[in-house]
Structure formats: structure tokens, C-alpha cells
């Protein structure tokens, strides 16, 4: 999986969707979740994807996360046509280049914060000692030093989401995909989480693609893409963020 460089936008183009369609089901009952999506996300961007429920934003995120493949059209990740990869190849792509943050946190229950963060490193085959150091650093970066041995059940929602973020960034991914990362949190906790994400974007240059329907959250992004009925309705470039 060698990365190729695209300089069409003048920016290093990491993700490129060209005429992507996603259809669920067949015949008259077919549901067109995505229709002709063209989208480019460059290295280091912070993109928020907005739209009402059923507008296709989550489907789009699943495709960007290599969890799903387009029914037609092309999804290039660093120039690689993801649609042509096998299931295992896509898993490897996720393992090495992607990090996920979910609305429901999706941490392993009854497993300590530290071990949750170590999990992606295990699949990378990293030795235990190095893994531990990296995981501790990641937890420190999200401000959870001292909470390493706590299990998700012993942590607040905001803390759980920080653990999830630590798990996502511990591998130094190229892209962090966040699906409603603040959906289960109150506004104060949400702002904390967004500050953490924004910091990783600006300080480490991790590309972030985030789904949200909360305008207050979307303002943290540098670019907002609005979905409506399976298509991109509008794009809005922001000069900066708070």
C-alpha cells in the first residue's frame, strides 16, 4: 500500500470520493443511501459532515472508514482504490491508517482504560513494553493520567470518550473518523472533547472527519459539508476555528 500523491488541489489529497453511490437492497425496494458523492479531503483537514438523519452521512463515514464499500464510484485512499481491496486488506488499512471515535464510545467493558488504548497496538504486533509506553502517552495526551486502571464502567461519559480518542490516536493514524463523538455528552463535556480533537488536528496534523448534527460542535471544523437525501447539499469553508 504505497501512498501516491495527488496535487490537484495544491494540497496533499488523502481521501477522494468520485461519483460514489451506495444502494441498499434491490429492485423497487432499493434504498439509495448515497447518490453521486464527490468529495476530497486533504492531509491535515478537519471536516465536519452534517445533515439530518437518513441523509447518508453515516453511510459516507462507513465508506471513509473502510468499513463499507461503495456500490459504484471510486473511493481512493492515498490513491488506493479501496473498493478493489479485500475485506482483510481493508482491515489492514484501518489498522495502519485509521482511528475511530464513536458516539457510543465502544470501549471494551471490564477492560482497563490502558488496555483499551493498547488494543490497536496489539493488532499491530507491537511488543508489550513499547505498547504500554505509547498507551500511557496517549492517555496523558487526552488528560487521563491517573485513570489508567479504571474500567469504562468506572469512568464518566466524557472520560470514556477521551479513552476512545486515546485509542484512536495511539497508532498515529492518518485519519481520525469521529461519528457523533459528542452525541452522548452534555455541552461542557462536548466542548472538552472537541478541544482535545481540535488539538490533535492542529498540533499533530491528524486529519479528522467528523459526523455531527450539532452546529455548535461543527464550528470546531475547518470545513463543513452538509448532506441531504444522499447527496452533498453544500460545502462551507471556514477561515479558522475558535
Amino acid at each position: 500500500m504505497k501512498a501516491t500523491t495527488s496535487t490537484q488541489t495544491g494540497k496533499h489529497c488523502l481521501i477522494e470520493l468520485k461519483g460514489v453511490n451506495k444502494v441498499y437492497g434491490k429492485g423497487p425496494a432499493a434504498m439509495h443511501a448515497l447518490q453521486g458523492i464527490d468529495l476530497r479531503i486533504g492531509q491535515g483537514e478537519f471536516v465536519a459532515v452534517m445533515g439530518p438523519s437518513g441523509s447518508g452521512k453515516s453511510t459516507c463515514m462507513n465508506i471513509l472508514g473502510c468499513l463499507d464499500t461503495p456500490s459504484s464510484g471510486v473511493f481512493l485512499f492515498e490513491g488506493i482504490d479501496v473498493g478493489k481491496l479485500s475485506r482483510d486488506q481493508r482491515a489492514l488499512l484501518r489498522r495502519h491508517y485509521l482511528g475511530f471515535v464513536f458516539q457510543g464510545f465502544n470501549l471494551l467493558n471490564r477492560t482497563s482504560a490502558l488496555e483499551n488504548v493498547e488494543l490497536p497496538l496489539i493488532y499491530r504486533g507491537m511488543p508489550a513494553g513499547e505498547r504500554r509506553v505509547r498507551a500511557l502517552q496517549a492517555l496523558e495526551a487526552v488528560g487521563l493520567t491517573g485513570w489508567e486502571t479504571h474500567t469504562p464502567g468506572e469512568l464518566s461519559g466524557g472520560q470514556q470518550q477521551r479513552v476512545a480518542i486515546a485509542r484512536a490516536i495511539v497508532t498515529n493514524p492518518k485519519v481520525l473518523l469521529a461519528d457523533e463523538p459528542t452525541g452522548n455528552l452534555d455541552s461542557a463535556r462536548s466542548r472538552e472533547i472537541m478541544d482535545v480533537l481540535a488539538a490533535f488536528n492542529s498540533e499533530r496534523g491528524i486529519t479528522i472527519a467528523m459526523v455531527t448534527h450539532d452546529a455548535d460542535i461543527a464550528v470546531y471544523a475547518k470545513r463543513i459539508i452538509r448532506f441531504f437525501d444522499g447527496s452533498i447539499d453544500s460545502e462551507e469553508e471556514k477561515p479558522g476555528f475558535a
Binding site: 475485506r87 489498522r95 490497536p120
Partner: peptide, 9 residues
């Protein structure tokens, strides 16, 4: 979760 973060089948 495991599959999403890169576990193979």
C-alpha cells in the same frame, strides 16, 4: 470494535 480497529477475520 476489534474488527473496526483493524483485527483481521
Amino acid at each position: 470494535i476489534r474488527l473496526a480497529i483493524g483485527a483481521l477475520e
